[in-house]
Nucleic acid binder design. Structure first.
Lengths: 203, 203
DNA sequence: TTCGTCATGTAAGAAGTTACATGATTAA
DNA sequence: TTAATCATGTAACTTCTTACATGACGAA
């Protein structure tokens, strides 16, 4: 983010990450931002100074150095591009749909759609917001990608709503559910399970 | 996976994970599979026995217990459904596209498309493969979702191919690249950087 | 007998989080 | 003065991976 030329503080960087790279990659915790900045400074990729403007509390801002710019350039070109990592909790629930009832599954999907719509609106809004800033051209392109990606996600989720009943009916014909009827549930059980799992470790 | 009713060994579970949940969630390393199985057995959610069939080496297979079934059921219904986690390295590269040249960026995207096509074919193939097994109805639904998801990913990537040049042209009008020209690259630098970063830690 | 390899298992470490600590400024 | 809050920073812990260890069987 510093290669865009501005000097930024830890908090700035976290905020920027939240509404740019956070949509399609991930956004680090604030504590990690500070940790990494410190590391980057010890190897000379960034340089910091304290500024105290009138009426503001003092902040430490970081700027990238020439060797820092060289390093990201090299990283961008030479480091292997991994296949995208996806951990889709909604699909995980649907995959084990035979352990749940169809209405609950559909509720999960509906809720998911609402969440994604919200994210999509934000991404689109941020993309528009950077209108006319040639320096943000790639950033804007990525945000538009994110908005389209979220739209595709919504379309796929809508399809699922219809398929859930279908799958549930099919499943009902199988003999897998010999394993147990839908049991009434004590939500407290997982706490005790975690305890039980933890205990053997500390022995 | 054990709720499908079969007794499975560690290796079995890893293989199953690779071609089911691995497409839309993630697949654990083999070592973690064994670690978790051990934990699950100490709390009574699974039960194991050694089997040695003629001509095969002995393996330890795990079956789920009633309390195990209850526990996943509860987990499936009660545990909060997180927003999908995405770490899209390709988009990360494009976001910092100003540090690279457009042709290289397009090559990254083309390569990505090829990778996704391969994955999509596998997911579709596995979905077809479980044809006519009502017990796998939800698993199959998820695999079909994955195939469609990958197709959408491909469509979005193709759009990007055109937008890259556009963004690069726009960016060229900005003054951000005062920071440095495209520098020739020594791929070895990252090794030494990692060393430099590691050292302060061990002091 | 030796070698390769498969199934299982362990130990060390990478990458990141949450929860907490600190100092300094603003508001009551 | 006290309380709230912001910017910064640290420590402990979680989760997962890679790399290594072990024991058993089959093949040469």
């Amino acid at each position: 983010m510093l290669t865009f030329g501005e000097e930024l503080s830890g908090t700035d960087l976290k905020k920027w990450a939240d509404w740019s790279v956070g949509f399609y990659y991930w956004s680090p915790s604030l504590s990690q931002v500070y940790t990494e900045l410190k590391k980057l400074e010890t190897v000379g990729f960034v340089q910091s100074r304290e500024i105290s403007e009138w009426g503001e509390r003092t902040r430490r801002v970081y700027g990238i150095t020439q060797s820092g710019v060289d390093a990201v350039r090299i990283w961008s070109r030479e480091s292997p591009v991994e296949f995208p990592v996806l951990k889709h909790s909604v699909m995980l629930r649907l995959w084990m749909g035979h352990l749940n009832d169809p209405d609950h599954l559909k509720a999960i999907v509906c809720n998911h759609i609402a969440n994604v719509e919200e994210k999509m609106a934000k991404a689109a809004q941020h993309a528009d917001h950077s209108e006319g800033e040639p320096g943000w051209a790639f950033s804007k392109m990525s945000l538009r990608w994110a908005a389209r990606h979220f739209q595709a996600e919504i379309d796929l989720a809508r399809d699922l709503l219809e398929e859930i009943d279908e799958a549930a009916e099919l499943f009902a014909q199988s003999r897998v559910d010999e394993l147990g009827l839908p049991t009434p549930v004590d939500p407290g059980i997982w706490k005790s399970v975690d305890d039980a799992i933890q205990k053997p470790r500390s022995d």
